[in-house]
Simulated scan of single mutants.
Amino acid sequence: MSIKILLYDDNEALRNSMTLLIEEEPGFELMAAMPNADTVEADLATFRPEVVLMDIDMPGVHGVEAVKRIRLRNGSLPVIMLTVFDDNENIFNAICAGASGYILKRYAAQEVVSAIRDVLSGGAPMTGSVARKVLGMVPVAKSTGQEKLDLSVKETAILQHLVNGYSYKMIATQEKISIDTVRFHIKKIYDKLHVHSATEAVSRAIRDRLV
């Protein structure tokens, strides 16, 4: 079965280049390349995509608003932002809206294919410079003497894998456990670190030297 992909971008040249890139990749199927996200709700029902590639600055419905609309109807559908913007505000707004990844257009030809596969394996693909900015956005956790994280050996190992950029599938293979078990451990990690995403968990781990 092919991976069904839906693309939104108002730049015709970019739509054409992404269409060629996706159609030439075995196992990928581009359902539609839309110039705007005005009909995003209807598009989800019509095309039933497994991954959405979303521009930010488009006429009509803004890309971040489109992500919010997608999340109201589907909380788990991977949405990768594909944009020229690498400023903190756009990155922060996209992630808060529910974006699953963030790729800069100038690296799209090299990164989009692997980003699609990564996001479907539970990863959060980001261009390197964007990932560094995301880490910088997460505030330093202030440790108190009363707080005790009490991560288990397995949770610590999985947290290390997250820091190393492993997807859920890669962690499952490395630890010889199922993906569902990986998800269970990661939920426990989030609870203990008081975070809500892999990005926040990685930032906390690095800043507080948890691994």
Rank of each mutant, 00 (worst) to 15 (best):
S2R: 08
I3K: 11
Y8W: 06
D9F: 01
D10N: 02
N11W: 01
E12V: 09
A13V: 05
A13T: 01
R15Y: 03
N16W: 01
N16R: 02
T19I: 01
L21N: 01
L21F: 00
I22F: 09
E23T: 13
E24H: 05
E24C: 02
L30I: 02
A32Q: 05
A32N: 04
M34L: 13
M34C: 08
N36D: 12
A37P: 10
L44G: 07
T46A: 14
R48L: 14
P49K: 07
E50D: 12
L53W: 00
M54I: 02
M54W: 09
I56N: 05
I56C: 07
K68V: 05
I70N: 03
R71W: 02
L72I: 06
G75D: 11
V79G: 04
I80R: 06
F85P: 01
D86M: 01
N90H: 10
N90V: 01
I91N: 03
A94W: 04
A94N: 00
I95V: 07
I95F: 07
G101Q: 06
I103E: 00
Y107A: 06
A109F: 10
V113Q: 04
A115K: 02
L120K: 07
G123W: 01
A124W: 08
A124V: 13
P125D: 08
M126S: 09
S129K: 08
S129D: 08
V130Q: 06
K133S: 08
K133R: 11
K133G: 06
G136D: 05
M137A: 09
V140E: 12
K142I: 10
G145R: 09
G145L: 13
Q146M: 11
E147S: 13
E147V: 13
K148I: 11
D150S: 12
L151D: 00
S152W: 03
S152G: 04
S152T: 12
V153M: 14
K154L: 10
I158F: 06
Q160K: 11
Q160G: 12
H161G: 11
V163G: 02
G165L: 02
G165K: 01
M170E: 15
I171C: 00
A172W: 07
A172D: 06
Q174L: 11
I177W: 02
I179E: 10
D180E: 11
D180K: 15
K187D: 09
I189V: 14
K192V: 08
K192Y: 05
L193F: 08
H194E: 14
H194T: 13
V195A: 08
A198Y: 12
T199K: 14
S203W: 04
A205T: 08
D208Q: 13
R209I: 11
R209N: 12
R209W: 07
